[in-house]
Design a protein around this nucleic acid. Structure first.
Lengths: 223, 223
DNA sequence: GTAATAAGTTAGAGCAATCTAACAATATAG
DNA sequence: CTATATTGTTAGATTGCTCTAACTTATTAC
């Protein structure tokens, strides 16, 4: 059994690897708000438990086993988020913090019940996939809005980095999953986009926002 | 903010005091499965936080503040148990362990939402009162079945010590809260009771069982 | 290709929570 | 009322997770 602390390192490693392909000590340190020497020693500990491949000065990699353990924590996190939104009436911006705690509950029954009551969902409220009981994830091939071209029509499929602030920002703009929009223009100097929503109003989205929105392409203007 | 460990000591003190009026280091030690010296040092720590009145060799007492903190943890525990039974379909024998973990979740919103969804219940699935947001508890004046007399008709109102084994035992006998029974006879040598259930079958209940069932008196035969 | 910067490691310390061993106070039994 | 048993405390060690300070390796800039 892994401690709560170990679980947090595993999950961080898992999500960082997802995000940028690999993770190093410094990334992990910043992500967890824990100093590098502490991270190094925890990596040695996790290596001795065969959860992480660790070699001095090399990038960190989860073992197959480590990946699975991490995925199962992510599974608990995302199932919880879905449950909080669907069954308890929380907003998508409120659930991350609570799920961050509940993901450490040790009770297979509890999460199976959630899964069942939710009808075995595949995605969480932010559009992220929920790993299955074996830790396997079916990744949707979404694209960042920031990678799309002027003229493209897309549907918002998921958000990256589910911080409360960002989600509250989306709420005030009434931007939610499933919303369609067309890219009117892209400012070349700051990569901000002017987009047109379903309701025919135009709005400006900063590049930071566009970086964090994953979309499904509906149609594009041929070059 | 109190640590998870501190919370467990506070809750233990609270329930022990409830059960037997006061608690000493040895009780707490046995109840928590932690050695006495560890308990002593934690008591000093909690005393320094003004949660416990501690004097060497004297019985332990929660301060008003300590009582409130403890009651609020018990509140979270019992609300959770109720939620698990009422909204998620767990059996009353399954919920204790899960609630033991969820009671430490730090999120007022989460428990308020539960309370709301449950319609502000006053009792948990085992018949124990749920303290209010100020930590106040309205104690029902139930009696132990073991204190009742031959001929009494009573209704089961609550169970003491909600261990899974005991509750499973009650399940197999189809004994649940609200069930009425009449005491036919009491064996004088072991205090076991022969009782008659609503469905007109007679059954024998050991004194251990009778000690753990709290009842409301419906009628009794005058002496 | 060296100098400067960034990233990573080692050594050593601190705190929280636990333990054991030894000693001290209180309660109980005769 | 003493002897014994129970309960409680003190002292000191251990483990898990964290830190800072000092040093090493790798990367980047010019």
């Amino acid at each position: 059994m892994n401690s709560l602390t170990e679980e947090n390192y595993l999950k961080a490693l898992y999500t960082l690897a997802d995000l940028k392909g690999e993770a190093n000590v410094n990334d992990l340190s910043k992500h967890l708000g824990i100093k590098m020497p502490t991270v190094t020693s925890m990596m040695k500990k996790l290596a001795s438990k065969h959860l992480v491949h660790y070699e001095s000065y090399k990038p960190l990699r989860l073992t197959e086993n480590g990946k699975k353990e991490a995925a199962l924590i992510v599974r608990k996190h995302r199932l919880t988020e879905m449950y909080l939104v669907e069954k308890m009436g929380f907003g998508w911006e409120q659930v991350h913090e609570i799920a961050e705690q509940i993901e450490h509950i040790q009770s297979p029954d509890f999460f199976e019940k959630m899964d069942e009551l939710l009808g075995f969902p595949k995605l969480d409220p932010h559009g992220s996939p929920i790993p299955d009981k074996n830790g396997e994830t079916v990744w949707q091939s979404y694209e960042k809005l920031s990678n799309c071209m002027s003229g493209d029509t897309v549907k918002i499929a998921a958000v990256i980095n589910t911080s409360g602030d960002f989600l509250t920002f989306l709420n005030t703009r009434e931007i939610s999953l499933g919303l369609q929009l067309q890219i009117i223009s892209i400012e070349s100097f700051d990569q901000s986009m002017t987009v047109n929503f379903e309701n025919h109003t135009n709005e400006m989205l900063s590049s930071t926002v566009c970086e964090r929105l994953l979309v499904e392409k509906i149609s594009s203007i041929p070059q």
